[in-house]
């Protein structure tokens, strides 16, 4: 059985790793694990993500050497404040890919190919700002020149899903799987956090067989973290906490306010975080 604690998952990671983080923007992000990385001594990470507050928080805690991403956004709030600050201060390196290129990089890693060809990126400044990118010519009659997107191979993947069993099988219950299975398949090791751990026999009680997105064959550890995607969404269990997301963005705009936010919400463990959020909600009358 692969059940672990949040601290055990983070304790098994190393500084300097390339870490893939599932979800999309401010949706179904493994935030409990991200928060624990922020509390840890880990540093110098390369973070691979359809970026949201996962990227932002890790930047705010100076855990990041490089971000590989096509964007960082909070969806209902277009720009991620900490990612912006890190870019504008020049404190992180950035590999900026088109969304489809990024997916092909993960596919290449999942299929254990050195690269996959695509038209996405051709002619754009993605080629200028990533001078290591190469093109490849079709060996067939068309002879078309295409971008050869290198495999984005991950040392570890972190994903958050609705349900999982203790063997590491994991299930999404919302409408969109995002690219979570690809992150897992592109990684040497994968860790799944979930809203609720269930018996294997109970997995199909809540969703069809097609909702079993991730197979235990690829999973190293699984951890139950109710509300572990907060403040991002985890449909159908949790909507995005828009009010809290606004509070996060407001705090990020001012060093003093951010220090207060950190102290109040992020200085303790996950249970302390969830308790602090509950107290904040009561105060705000939400």
């Amino acid at each position: 059985m692969k059940e672990m604690t949040i601290e055990e998952v983070v304790g098994s990671l190393d500084s300097g790793m390339t870490l893939g983080i599932g979800g999309w923007g401010s949706r179904r992000k493994p935030m409990a694990l991200v928060r624990a990385i922020c509390r840890s001594a880990l540093t110098d990470l390369t973070v691979v993500s359809y970026g949201g507050p996962d990227v932002g928080l890790l930047c705010a805690y100076r855990k990041v050497r490089r971000v590989i991403a096509p964007f960082a956004t909070l969806d209902s709030i277009p720009l991620e404040p900490h990612f912006r600050q890190a870019r504008q201060r020049g404190t992180i390196a950035f590999t900026e890919y088109d969304e489809g290129m990024f997916m092909f990089g993960l596919y290449a890693a999942a299929y254990r190919l050195p690269f996959l060809p695509t038209r996405a990126g051709l002619g754009s400044d993605v080629m200028r700002v990533n001078p290591e990118l190469r093109t490849v010519r079709s060996p067939y009659e068309d002879g078309e020149e295409l971008v050869a997107v290198p495999a984005i191979t991950l040392d570890a993947a972190l994903v958050h899903l609705g349900r999982a069993d203790r063997r590491g099988n994991a299930q999404y219950l919302g409408p969109d799987p995002y690219l979570d299975d690809l992150f897992v398949k592109a990684a040497s090791r994968a860790y799944v956090s979930c809203e609720r751990l269930v018996e294997t026999a109970d997995l199909l009680k809540e969703g069809p067989v097609q909702s079993l997105l991730i197979s235990r064959s690829h999973v190293t550890g699984v951890v139950e973290t109710p509300g572990g995607a907060h403040f991002t969404s985890c449909e159908p269990d949790e909507d995005r906490d828009e009010a809290f997301q606004r509070a996060y963005v407001t705090a990020a705009g001012d060093p003093q306010a951010w220090a207060t936010f950190r102290d109040r919400f992020l200085s303790g463990d996950e249970a302390a975080y969830q308790a602090a959020v509950r107290a904040w909600r009561e105060e705000e009358g939400r």
Binding site: G51, A69, P70, F71, A72, T73, P78, L79, E96, Y97, D98, E99, G100, M101, T118, R119, A120, G121, L122, G123, S124, D125, V126
Partner: peptide, 9 residues
């Protein structure tokens, strides 16, 4: 700003 998102493709 946002990043290139899907605009190139």
């Amino acid at each position: 700003l946002l990043g290139v998102r899907g605009a190139p493709g």
